[in-house]
Every structure is written in C-alpha cells, then in structure tokens.
C-alpha cells in the first residue's frame, strides 16, 4: 500500500543509504528499482510515465489544439506547469485580453520541459498539465474513451473521482429548476451572482 511504501522510504531508505559507502553499483541498481514501474505491485503505485514517440506526438497535437480550450481549463493547465496548487472554485474570470498570451506561455513552458526531459520519463508537472488538457477534452466530447493515452499515473481512487466529477458535470443540463436551486448554496455559498448569472455560468461547465 502507498502508506506502507511511504513509511519504508521515509524511515528506512535514509538509514540504508547512509550505510552505503561509495557502492555505486548498488546505488545504480537501487535507482533502477525505484524508477521501474514493474517494481510496484499495484497499478495505482506506478510512479512515472515513460516518454515514447507516441506520447510526444500526442503532446504536440494537444498543444496545437490549445486554442479550443476555454480560459478556465487553460488557467488550470498553466497552474500545473508552474506547480501552483489552489482550491477548485466554481467561478473564475481571467482577463480575456490575456488569453492569447496565456496560450503562448503554456506552449513555451511545455516545449521547454520537453527539451529538458532526462532519462526518458515524463516530468510530473508536464504530465499533470497534459492530464488537465485530456480531462477537458473528455468532458467536452462526453467520452471517457477519448484517449487511451494516460499522461500521469493517477491512483485508482483519483481516476475514479475524476470520472465521478465528469459524470456529474454531464448531468448538469438535465437538472430541473428546483434541483439547480438546491445546488446554488453549495457551489456559490457567498452569493456573488444573480440567479441568471449563476445559471449562465453553470451552463459553461
């Protein structure tokens, strides 16, 4: 399990490493074990995504199609690239005049990371950013099967949560007026929008 693995790595790996004295072969073998996805019994513990020509081609295609992604998703992709975390919010209004600039920044950051890829594995920030793009297209095209290519090895729990959220978003247009009323205090607890604004912004999801 992940908690057990975390405990072993946190408490035992430093002791083990401290006892090694210039044993480069063992260190090299240990590095291989830590990197190799086959070292982890469960799929949910796979840690890195190998970079293949197919993966790179898929990233380039996704970057070419960034123009078709709305501002909210673009901002989220950029956040992943710079490693900034934030609580998801129902509503976000980026300055529309900066959209073109944002697309260029995202493309440039991705290409810089790709140019620096070492050891043939996807860096975490790029993998998470591309997963955001993937999630957006899944949501937009209403298909879980849009891409068999997964950029980041999310745990089974996280992948299941993502699918639950997608299913919930797809159900939104079917909600009756009364149900929407119930949703409002949850999504907009400190009402910033008028009723119409709320419904319009909800439709954008």
């Amino acid at each position: 399990t992940r908690p057990l693995l975390r405990e072993i790595v946190t408490y035992h790996l430093p002791c083990y490493l401290a006892k090694l004295d210039h044993e480069d072969v063992i260190m090299s073998e240990l590095s291989e074990i830590l990197i190799n996805p086959g070292s982890y019994q469960s799929d949910s513990l796979s840690l890195v995504t190998p970079v293949s020509p197919l993966l790179l081609s898929s990233i380039n295609q996704a970057l070419d199609r960034l123009d078709g992604i709305p501002d909210q998703a673009l901002v989220a992709v950029n956040r992943k690239l710079i490693g900034k975390t934030s609580m998801p919010k129902f509503w976000h209004v980026p300055r529309s005049s900066s959209r073109g600039h944002l697309i260029e920044i995202v493309r440039k950051r991705c290409k810089m990371i790709i140019a620096r890829i070492e050891e043939g594995y996807m860096p975490k920030r790029l993998a998470k950013a591309m997963s955001m793009v993937n999630l957006y297209w899944k949501q937009k095209l209403r298909s879980m099967d849009i891409s068999q290519l997964e950029y980041f090895p999310f745990s089974k729990e996280t992948a299941s949560l993502q699918n639950d959220v997608l299913n919930a978003l797809w159900l939104l247009p079917k909600l009756q007026h009364d149900d929407l009323k119930l949703l409002r205090p949850i999504l907009d607890p400190d009402p910033k929008f008028r009723k119409m604004q709320f419904r319009v912004s909800l439709r954008k999801y």
Binding site: R6, V9, D24, L34, I35
Partner: peptide, 18 residues
C-alpha cells in the same frame, strides 16, 4: 548520500513521500 540516486529515482522518492 541521497544525491547519488539518479534524478528519476529521486523523482520517484519525492512522489512516494508526497
């Protein structure tokens, strides 16, 4: 000592303990 691990291995360690 941990710096002797390769970058990929360090990335794995960081992910495990994060």
């Amino acid at each position: 000592t941990i710096n002797k691990l390769s970058n990929g291995a360090l990335q794995s360690v960081a992910k495990i303990i994060s």
